[in-house]
Design a protein around this nucleic acid. Structure first.
Length: 476
RNA sequence: CGCGGGGUGGAGCAGUAGUAGCUCGUUAGGCUCAUAACCUAAAGGUCGCAGGUGCAAUUCCUGCCCCCGCAACCA
């Protein structure tokens, strides 16, 4: 029943700050999709990693008084920790400082260059010394940088390599004609409108003298690649492109189905720039990019100054891996911005996991443990229920569907009272309890991609015919 | 007239041209298998404002108000 090999990747977090809830959301969504495909029998390659080059990282390392390498190593570890805490099933963890990735970035550069899409020109812009970066005119207020109104904006001109984005307007529009290339649909419209507005070539390198932490451009040591040109290449370098000694690139990218998961601010990078790069390098385009929304807290962006930051690792520590996955998948909209507060997290946990699923597992398994024999379990047929909502990235709808079964089973027990029937009519009661177990089994199976550890614990409990330890202990 | 998303009972969200649903919270019952859990019922909304089209609009159209993102080299 397996389909094409399935490739899925997250964007690579930029390692200039610690992991936040947005990263956790993207990771968990991607992991759930990967697990769901594996459960369908598809061969899956799930990749994630870290983006480690660029000026900001260089500066952040200096501020932290660390060598850049130590600094990026530290953050790569942080993200790997989060991945482990969320029980990600990724097959690869790519770092853009990996030698193989650097080779790949050089290679795609050469291919774009061979295609005539890379050229050198002088870039003149207003440079804010305070920000250490160029400002567009729109960003400036009254000729001053809004962040550093006292610093003089300097007109700096610099020779950089540019990518002929403008060459790809028609081909990008043709690509965007395909309804599935972007989800949700309205972001595809957004992308089309943007392309129709005209595309400007963009600079893909910086002078090495100003920015040392990057991949040198091939054949020109005086320049380094601008970080995202390098970073975007990760989606194929992680598969072993270009050498492809293991054949993963051919299997998963060329012959497989490809899906990228990204934040809603990424449309231009993932669906336009990256796709144009692929066209230039004569590599197949991404089949689908799914864009999720952002998580706010208390109606505002999470920020350290507001003090409303929710740290995903803290949350996992307090509530557990599957509880965090549950909240991100069910109580966060897949594509719209969603609000999450610690109070809300606590409420969802208590209401649906402690009182809901956890209690249901306990009451059903207690009945089974008391009244059923292992032989009853062994002869049980286990139904499989398909979760349709997953076809459309509707994680929350899929979870709602599963929870209808949870509630339904609670209702069944309350109205049919198997615990009472079994006292007077043991055989009939046992059959009723067995049907409860079947339902619980179905719930556990459906839950597997979303809450893998919970799913396994339920299935193990059913198999052993033993009430498990409290899966979701009450929290203060 | 820059682009997009949103304004629905106390809170958070669904939803549809024709008795407005869900989760949490509140109140009253019930049950006792279970984690003081679970089940049932009730209270609570002029579905942002004003017009328009329709037999009928929260749902379609127009205008306005308010909130939130984005506005290209930002990884």
């Amino acid at each position: 029943m397996g389909g094409k090999p399935f490739y899925i990747t997250t964007t690579l977090p930029y390692v200039n700050a610690s992991p936040h809830m947005g990263h956790a959301l993207e990771f968990v969504q991607a992991d759930t999709l990967a697990r769901a495909r594996r459960a369908q029998g598809d061969e899956v390659f799930f990749s994630t990693g870290t983006d480690e080059h660029g000026q900001k990282i260089f500066e952040a390392a200096q501020r932290a008084g660390q060598s850049v390498q130590d600094y990026v190593d530290h953050y790569a570890t942080e993200f790997q920790k989060l991945g482990a805490a969320l029980d990600l099933s990724n097959d690869a963890f790519i770092r853009t400082t990996d030698p193989a990735h650097i080779k790949a970035a050089e290679n795609i550069w050469r291919r774009c260059e061979a295609g005539g899409d890379i050229y050198k020109k002088t870039y003149a812009g207003l440079y804010c010394v305070g920000c250490e970066s160029f400002k567009t005119e729109k960003e400036c207020e009254g000729g001053k940088c809004p962040l550093h109104p006292n610093a003089e904006l300097k007109e700096i001109s610099e020779e950089n390599y540019f990518f002929k984005f403008s060459n790809y307007q028609e081909r990008l529009l043709a690509y965007l004609e395909q309804p599935n290339v972007i989800t949700p649909e309205w972001r595809r419209i957004e992308a089309i409108n943007f392309v129709k507005g005209g595309l400007e070539d963009f600079s893909i390198s910086r002078e090495a003298s100003r920015l040392s932490w990057g991949i040198p451009t091939p054949d020109d040591e005086s320049q380094v690649m601008y970080v995202w040109f390098d970073a975007l290449t990760n989606y194929i370098s992680t598969l072993g492109w270009p050498k492809d000694v293991e054949g993963n690139f051919q299997k998963f990218w060329t012959d497989g189905q490809t899906l990228q998961v990204a934040g809603k601010d990424q449309v231009r990078f993932q669906s336009l720039m990256w796709q144009a790069m692929l066209m230039s390098a004569d590599i197949k385009n991404t089949d689908t990019v799914f864009y999720h929304g952002f998580i706010t807290s208390g109606g505002q962006k999470m920020s350290k100054s507001l003090g409303n930051v929710i740290n995903p690792l803290d949350l996992v520590e307090k509530y557990g891996t599957d509880a965090v996955r549950y909240i991100l998948l069910r109580h966060v909209s897949p594509t719209e911005d969603s609000d999450l507060t610690l109070d809300a997290v606590h409420e969802y946990y208590t209401a649906h996991l402690t009182n809901g699923l956890g209690n249901l597992i306990a009451r059903v398994m207690k009945l089974a443990e008391t009244h059923l024999e292992p032989s009853d379990i062994a002869r049980m047929e286990t139904p499989h229920v398909r979760v349709d909502a997953m076809d459309d990235f509707q994680f929350n709808k899929a979870m709602d569907f599963i929870w209808e079964h949870v509630t339904g089973l609670d209702e069944y027990i309350a109205s049919e009272k198997p615990f009472a029937v079994v006292k007077d009519e043991p055989e009939q009661g046992k059959e009723m309890i067995l049907s409860c177990i079947k339902q619980l089994h179905a719930i556990a199976t459906m839950l597997a991609p979303f809450m893998p550890q919970t799913s396994e614990k339920i299935l193990a409990a059913i198999k052993e015919n033993k009430k498990p330890e409290n899966l979701f202990p009450r929290k203060e």
